[in-house]
């Protein structure tokens, strides 16, 4: 297992410029416990890449390291060749690396349109204009409505986010993320807690949103991963267990053991 992990980075480095996001030797230690140990990850530009693994495999930690929510103990993160290891979440977001959250991250007391408008204000430069009326952000409404329509929320424009259904909240979250025109979208379990009937529309939404950009997602639902993703990285015990497309990964004996062999904590 260690041997295969050691071989992977050389492969990835060889691919070089085509990787929009790279992690090298990523390690995170929580009070003596290494949740993530020397993970190398390369996300190819324009791909949909999934991070999977049994419970406690370090997926979420790995994700939080990549989004700069956590500071790595060791290792480097490169975004488009730039070392972003020491930058903050808001700084990497402005560079085009934007994350979503596992629990639906909307602004419950704002309407759907206002939710998207907050994201649009990020680059519009009015976020600190406390002396102006809301007419100052009226030019953003057209773009906000367009994004809402793209995710099928045109009818809920003036509804407070708190009153939207769970599926619609996730759609709103994607519209809000798309408002930043991210080059890379990091999605944390986009279908978590979702009923069977909501999974399909969200999967379609992600597929549409991924056109022209890169998506890295952490996911539990293997059927979502199988149809959506170009490449899958399997984590176990904080290390990379296997990597490849769905067919390769699902036939890997180590992965089968990890998923079937009861390593769940």
């Amino acid at each position: 297992m260690n041997a295969s992990a050691a071989v992977l980075p050389r492969d990835n480095v060889a691919a070089g410029a085509d990787n929009v996001l790279e992690a090298r030797g990523l390690t995170k230690v929580f009070g003596g416990f290494a949740a993530v140990k020397g993970v190398n990850l390369a996300v190819r530009r324009g791909s949909i890449h999934a991070l999977i693994g049994p419970n406690g495999a370090g997926k979420t930690t790995c994700f939080n390291l990549l989004t700069k929510t956590l500071v790595p103990t060791e290792g480097r993160i490169l975004f488009d060749g730039e070392d972003i290891s020491s930058l903050r979440t808001s700084e990497v977001a402005r560079r085009g690396l934007v994350r979503s959250f596992q629990i639906s991250a909307t602004f419950p007391n704002l309407t759907a349109r206002e939710n998207v408008r907050v994201a649009l204000q990020s680059s519009f430069g009015t976020a600190y204009h406390f002396w102006r009326s809301l007419r100052a952000v009226a030019p953003l409404n057209a773009r906000a409505d367009e994004l809402l329509e793209q995710v099928g929320l045109a009818g809920s424009r003036d509804t407070p986010a708190a009153e939207l259904s769970y599926g619609k909240k996730r759609a709103l979250e994607i519209a809000t993320t798309l408002a930043l025109e991210p080059r890379v979208m990091l999605l944390d379990e986009p279908t978590a807690g979702m009923g069977h009937e909501d999974v399909e529309p969200i999967t379609d939404l992600i597929r549409n949103a991924a056109v022209g950009r890169t998506v890295l997602l952490v996911e539990h639902n293997l059927s979502v991963v199988s149809t959506l993703c170009d490449k899958i990285t399997v984590l176990q015990y904080g290390q990379v267990l296997a990597e490849g497309n769905y067919a390769e990964v699902s036939n890997d004996p180590a992965v089968v053991t990890a998923y079937m062999g009861g390593v769940d904590e």
Binding site: T67, T69, R88, T89, S90, E91, A93, R94, V98, R99, S100, F101, A105, T106, F107, P108, N109, L110, V118, A119, S122, S123, T176, A179, L180
Partner: peptide, 10 residues
Amino acid sequence: DNQPRVESLG
């Protein structure tokens, strides 16, 4: 409403 989300929006 949601401080971490605002930060994630840059």
